[in-house]
């Protein structure tokens, strides 16, 4: 393992600088049957998020009288990783579902919809480290697309440590063989709603990693915002052409 070199002349294995995200592609409203949906590619991660609701709660006993409940299901497709993954939920996906739900819950105004449920489904089609962050980014846009009242969007990305260097958005090799990985989710006003870490970092490295990840999230927020705004401005241009004809 010590033989591995992750950084050469300040450039990472995939040609990125330390503070550079992988390329991001997003599309809103990709599913017709869902109330809101979003497809995202973050590097080699391919994730789709669908939002249903608010709708009636089944089973009934989960219902809350004064607010909507939120269910978040993170699921990896069996073909999303190199070695076939056994389908169905496992310990890891339960954990990710829980932390991702808690990352989004603080921004959603659940009190508007008592006795109902908002279901969020996140399907990982292809994984390459950072799927939970991709899932949260997509789910947050899908919630907005579903017309659900929120205080703001949530943006998420990870920072990690490889070769003793703090890097933004680690890809698979950096995550698997690096020294630390720390995904965060944050609102545009700077409130952190998700913070996890595995590996070892010093206090200073930790602070440095948070700052770096925050910058990454700000960049992702701009992309999220743009994709939502552009969807309708594009539509408007088309309409204008139509009326001129």
């Amino acid at each position: 393992m010590d033989e591995r070199v992750f950084i050469k002349d300040g450039i990472r294995l995939d040609g990125r600088r330390f503070d550079e995200l992988r390329p991001i592609k997003m599309e809103v409203g990709v599913l017709k049957r869902a109330d809101g949906s979003c497809y995202i590619e973050m590097g080699d991660n391919k994730v789709i998020a669908a939002v249903y609701g608010p709708r009636e709660v089944h089973p009934r006993h989960l219902q809350e009288v004064n607010r909507a409940i939120i269910r978040y299901r993170y699921n990896m497709a069996s073909f999303s990783v190199e070695e076939r993954r056994r389908p169905g939920p496992d310990r890891r996906s339960y954990e990710l579902s829980k932390v991702s739900r808690e990352a989004l819950e603080p921004v959603i105004l659940t009190s508007y919809f008592p006795k109902s449920v908002i279901d969020i489904f996140v399907e990982v089609l292809q994984a390459d480290a950072g799927t939970r962050t991709a899932g949260i980014n997509a789910a947050s846009v899908a919630l907005a697309d579903a017309g659900i009242p929120m205080r703001s969007l949530v943006s998420s990305c990870a920072a990690g440590k490889v070769d003793g260097q703090i890097v933004l958005d680690p890809m698979k090799d950096e995550d698997n063989f690096g020294q630390a990985d720390m995904p965060i989710a944050i609102t545009p006003t700077g409130e952190i709603t998700l913070l996890q870490m595995d590996g070892i970092m010093t206090r200073d490295e930790f602070r440095q990693a948070i700052e770096l990840a925050k910058k990454g999230c700000q960049e992702i927020y701009r992309i999220q915002r743009k994709v939502l705004i552009d969807r309708y401005s594009q539509f408007e241009d088309l309409q204008d052409e139509g009326s001129r004809r």
Partner: peptide, 10 residues
């Protein structure tokens, strides 16, 4: 009248 597309948190 001024109209604009906005997202949550704008």
């Amino acid at each position: 009248m001024d109209r604009k597309i906005v997202i949550p948190g704008d």
